[in-house]
Design a protein around this nucleic acid. Sequence first.
DNA 1: GTTAGCACTCAATAATTAAGAGTGCTAATA
DNA 2: TATTAGCACTCTTAATTATTGAGTGCTAAC
Lengths: 349, 349
Amino acid sequence: MDITEELDERKVKILNAVIQTYLDTGEPVGSRTISKSSDLKLSSATIRNEMSDLEELGYIIQPHTSAGRIPSDKGYRFYVNHLLEEKDAEINEIKDLMILRTEKMEKVLKQVVKVLANNTQYASIISAPAISGNKVKFVQLSAVDEQHILSVVVMEGNLIKNKMIEIDEPLDAETLLKLNMLLNTNLNGLTVHDINLTLIARMKEEAGEFEPIIENVLNTIADTIGEDEKIEVYTSGATNIFKYPELADSEKASRFLTTFEEKESIIDLITEVQSEGDATGTGIQVYIGEESPIAGMRDCSVVTATYELGEGVKGTIGIIGPKRMDYKNVMSNLKNLKRQLDHTLKQQE
Amino acid sequence: MDITEELDERKVKILNAVIQTYLDTGEPVGSRTISKSSDLKLSSATIRNEMSDLEELGYIIQPHTSAGRIPSDKGYRFYVNHLLEEKDAEINEIKDLMILRTEKMEKVLKQVVKVLANNTQYASIISAPAISGNKVKFVQLSAVDEQHILSVVVMEGNLIKNKMIEIDEPLDAETLLKLNMLLNTNLNGLTVHDINLTLIARMKEEAGEFEPIIENVLNTIADTIGEDEKIEVYTSGATNIFKYPELADSEKASRFLTTFEEKESIIDLITEVQSEGDATGTGIQVYIGEESPIAGMRDCSVVTATYELGEGVKGTIGIIGPKRMDYKNVMSNLKNLKRQLDHTLKQQE
DNA sequence: GTTAGCACTCAATAATTAAGAGTGCTAATA
DNA sequence: TATTAGCACTCTTAATTATTGAGTGCTAAC
């Protein structure tokens, strides 16, 4: 698949011209168009011969006998790997990402994904950072009223979790203080996975008569943190596909949008992405057509970037669009966003 | 618009038959169909005459000269107001709505709206309860580390809000305690609107050298609570419109889905709904076609219910579907859901 | 190796036709 | 007087048939 291997310079130029033109117009491109538009001084007949070769090599396809050519998945792949020059896009800034309060975080992610969809005009997705490896920083129980105490857990990165716990009879201030100390001494610096049975047993023992409360709190902590194991995904701009005629007929649109609404398969994609490397060496992954792991999106291309807010705290951001998407713009957008998200944590530590 | 006014019994029967049939098939219905299917023993010619009258009266419409009739908005309206019999649908239960923690709340709402979309097979929306009139129940500041204190505000109905506040220099435990007392004594039982300048001035004075912190906390509270002034809306099942051919061509679908994705106009709808009464006397509002306040949804009908979790804490739940929707099923579903949501708070108090 | 020229192919569009559902009207009927 | 049968007419939908034109592949000349 190397440039020099099977394509001479002229073929590469022609292939590039075909793809570029197709990205613009969305119509199959013919030999005459290339002959006129490109800087190669060649007649359409010559181009035709070359295009015939390129088709034989699998880079372009003829949708039917007497039509121009469109890029094949292989063609796009070549384009992405070899022909794409980076472009440094201006992109709307993201502010205030500093504090990882879940609620806040969610708003920020919604905002980011909206900006991305807006910038690229493609359907966009972002997954919330998975925090399973994250450490407990601070725990506090407070008496709210006679039947309720509130547990607040702050994780590394200032992610905050609350839970209301029902109790049978009121706790006095002293007991509460004791419990708080007990919790903080034992849990501080631990991840959810570290909270094992031995520890729980020991804490229960120390708690004495308040054992049920400790148990409740620990469950609560495990629960609330565990909740985030299932990845949250936010999306925006799904309806942009109507802007691309090749995807806009109602059958395809229906399939696409339904897949998009059911977020499960997107989560699959996201997790797959996170575990894979990237071929381009830019921190960006590109799936073209059939390469995509999601069945409902075989007519599309998917471009994703994985951002990392800290050890084990990873999320993915990506866009889904027609194969003839503006890869250049998309990739620089994602790169930028990735940089910003990556940078965010540094600022905070 | 009363039954006896302009429609005799037979006309009503025929109108009913037309609408019922149209709801089933989605095709214009002709005189012969009615003649055969209904229990009236009349020939198609007679039916034709009656239908001609019904058209003149505005209850049904002929899409073109030689087609059957379809219900007009007025026809649907008549159907909804007079012909619809209630049906008590079984509906999946909703559990665990007890605690209004924002995060939790959100998950519950997402769940509810999904269930609704699933039950009805129409696009569904639900708005989170607006809490602006809600009272402060409990405030707590905790030192998390040297640069951060965490403010936790619990509102009536156990809605919890957190905010991390940055500070320049550490606070000792005693000061924190003092501040906590100050905050709780002054704010307890107040709504956001009650926190006025006079009160703020007095609290600042009492706070002495810690005035900046109090200010920060108060702003925080106002901010965090104020955030909810803009109504959150959750949606599900938007892609169901592809199930209804009359809405599924890509232009209409695009318009609809785009409106649906931009939640702004839905919020308009929701707020409008909350301020209006309902004509049916069932706590359910029905907008048919042009009656809808949303331009992008003039081809649809909208059915909504307002639920109330307590004084001033209101939300709206609704579905959007084709005009020929199964009003009976939708309305009973909404009614049920409304009851469950209404009931929820009682359980909690 | 490149190019001009030409016959051929095939999708897309438009035009034509055919079928059928449904109406409105009239005249006959109970 | 209300109902019905019958028939001509309308208009959509689907199917069929040109028409067009972009684009190719091939051949022969440069």
